[in-house]
Amino acid sequence: MRARLGFLGVNAALALLAALTLFPLAWMISASLMAPGEANNYPPPLLPTSATLENYRVLFAEHGLVRQVFNSLLISLFATLLSLAFNLSAGYAFAKLRFWGRERIFRLLLGALVIPAQITMMPLFFMLKRMGLVNTTPGVLVPWLASVVGIYLVREYARSIPDELLEAARMDGAGEGRIFLKVVLPLLKPIMVTLAVLAFMLSWNDFMWPLVVLTDREMQTLPVALATLSREHVQDVELMMAGAVITVLPVLLIFFALQRYYMQGLLAGSVKG
């Protein structure tokens, strides 16, 4: 009897928690399909009386949101590629190659994690302005070049590569670049996927830096454009919900497809400190 109660309690609590958690997202989708003005009623409707894609049409046709979808995709793809290029090589070197001050430099990098990145925003803005990079795609990408967490993730993973393998390759006369490309990278594939998923999602969801550095609407990313739109269209709930769905959909799809890699990155990355 007692076991039965426990079973019911645990599962009811879980189901309730999951329902509460999913509800806002479900409502977002539902409201995005409502006719304009429909959501502002009492009692508030849960489902559209007749679902319509009109809001999506308005967003793309009248507000030209295609442009921002494109911007976001471009920026996140570049951020992913840059993150891979910079962090894979550095993480591997920190794990497997010997050079002067390796441990000391790495400790310094970890120590820098306590400094919130927002401190750099104002000087960085001024620097980029001097370089003519404000309001450009390279300007938004600057923070994604290399990251301490990224280097850390790769380093942790790369440490499991047996030294004998690298030595054997060196014996065969392979250069370091060739070893990295032909021997190391294939072994790093899982962490590459993790890193790519993390970089794509984080850069897609990033808000403050794009808000600061992309001043022109034509250059904005989806989250920033959504913020701007929602200030102009406070009353158009259904339209904003359509915008919200478009904004979250890509990250959610990637997450569902590559969840395993994402979780591994999360667990490995959080053990820092």
Binding site: L25, M28, N205, P223, L226, S230, G243, F255, Q259
Partner: peptide, 26 residues
Amino acid sequence: TALFVPVVATLAAVAVTWRFLLHTRY
């Protein structure tokens, strides 16, 4: 997965959603 989904959802999007969920009247 269900409990984790909000973590990956774009903050800007869920903030707009919540603004309406929190509306006083509707």
